[in-house]
């Protein structure tokens, strides 16, 4: 069992009509190393999201991992970017550092590309970990079961 605490990440968001000065979002993001079965690894940002049924990543990251996406099992998912997204699934090892390392059957979809980071959802992540958010302190803790 491992337990690690991570700082929130500050992200500057561009101005828009509702926020003419722009704004800064503090998100419970951390940094992960994804490793595919082919041995390829990449570093990216991930965000624990208990509202996501599964772990989801931008399709671009699957291409960086050199996954053969057209031969991966796929499903149609909703809720990210559009009503329907083709999502390609593969088993990936996710290392969050500080001893938090696990494998999960994760999805890669173009609907996540504009967001640019991964979501750690219920299947594969929350079913194996406890997460505590301390927003005022801008830290969160992940503990593996």
């Amino acid at each position: 069992m491992a337990k690690a605490t991570y700082p929130y990440v500050a992200i500057s968001l561009p101005a828009n009509e509702a926020h003419p000065q722009g704004t800064t979002a503090f998100r419970p993001l951390t940094f992960a190393t994804l490793t595919a079965a082919n041995g390829q690894s990449i570093r990216c940002m991930v965000l624990p999201d208990s509202g996501a049924d599964a772990c989801l990543f931008p399709l671009s990251l699957a291409l960086l991992l050199e996954l053969d996406v057209l031969n991966l099992p796929k499903a149609i998912t909703g809720g990210v970017g559009s009503q329907t997204n083709v999502t390609y699934y593969d088993t990936i090892t996710i290392d969050l550092g500080s001893g938090i390392r696990f494998s999960a059957f994760v999805g890669f979809t173009q609907g996540m590309d504009p967001i640019g980071f991964g979501l750690l959802g219920q299947a594969g992540f929350f079913e194996q970990h406890r997460v505590e958010f301390r927003h005022r302190q801008k830290i969160f803790t992940i503990e593996s079961d």
């Binding site: 561009p14 828009n16 940094f31 990449i42 570093r43 960086l64 504009p114 967001i115 640019g116 980071f117």
Partner: peptide, 14 residues
């Protein structure tokens, strides 16, 4: 092994 991130754009920042 760089950290790969994407800069939020106006329409997807939030």
């Amino acid at each position: 092994l760089p950290l790969m991130v994407r800069v939020p754009d106006r329409n997807t920042a939030m």
